[in-house]
Design a binder for these strands. Structure first.
Lengths: 144, 144
DNA sequence: TATAAATCGGATGTTCTTATCCTATTTAAA
DNA sequence: TTTAAATAGGATAAGAACATCCGATTTATA
């Protein structure tokens, strides 16, 4: 469904948010360990998320990554996915046709419209806070 | 959502079904032209679909591809997708975790279960006949 | 029976995603 | 002010997906 980059990005953001709630700034290494991802590759994704403003990076010794605690209610899964994979997952045609729309539908258009609308609604209504809540309480997991 | 191979496979099957309803056996070239896909690459996908039994291939002069008209009601989108992309789209975890399930859910598990169930239901309930109907009547399109 | 049209399938090439490596820069703290 | 710990980011490598090439095989038809 999502690219591996995107999966890492979602997990990383969730982890950073949880630790942030405990006032812990987390390092790249700690993130990669927590979400079981390759360190250097994860760095690229974190840089991208930082440039997009979804997370904040702090350079230098004792540096690391944070998510603005005042924003965890407004940053959505949709924004993370858009930053990494683009919006094609829930906007593009199910058969990859550029000209596909209600006026010139592909054979699966009507069937996919419903799914994609729901996917979009779900991504837009799920916040970083939502992701973090279960994690914080140990109800959900990030590994394997 | 699907791989490019899968998109070609779905389009090709739909096209073959429509022509089959008119008693036309279609060649690789004709298929690639109709669905605007690379010829040799499309050949591989058609071979795969033929091996899986979703379509039938006829070798030699005047050969080509067909779909058994008695099966167009029972062959589903789900089967085409499974043959080409596997079942991970609607079975796998949204974050790519192998151990993710209701007992050990990832942070997006509950949100995705609903979407994936609907996607699965949609793919399983959409038959080749469904795909072909709109095309036959010129209501849906395969190109661009 | 020879020919031409078609699929089959192995080998190879290209492009994109994923992953690694290494150096530069930043910054807290000794 | 030096050191060490950390992110930034360019360069490169490995792997998978996408695509092409070409010879082998099959088969209808002239």
């Amino acid at each position: 469904m999502f690219s591996k980059s995107c999966e890492y990005g979602i997990k990383a953001t969730a982890f950073i948010a949880v630790e942030g709630a405990k006032n812990n700034r987390v390092s790249l290494k700690a993130i990669a360990k927590a979400i079981d991802s390759p360190v250097a590759f994860t760095a690229k994704i974190l840089q991208l998320l930082a440039r997009t403003g979804i997370i904040t990076s702090v350079q230098g010794a004792a540096g690391g990554f944070e998510v603005d605690q005042s924003k965890i209610d407004s940053i959505t899964l949709s924004q993370i996915v858009a930053a990494i994979d683009g919006e094609n997952i829930y906007k593009g045609c199910g058969l990859g046709l550029k000209a596909c729309n209600a006026n010139k539908p592909c054979p699966v258009h009507d069937k996919f419209v419903i799914i994609r609308e729901e996917l979009k609604a779900m991504l837009e209504s799920t916040t970083v806070k939502d992701l973090a809540l279960g994690l914080k309480d140990g109800l959900t997991y990030l590994k394997r």
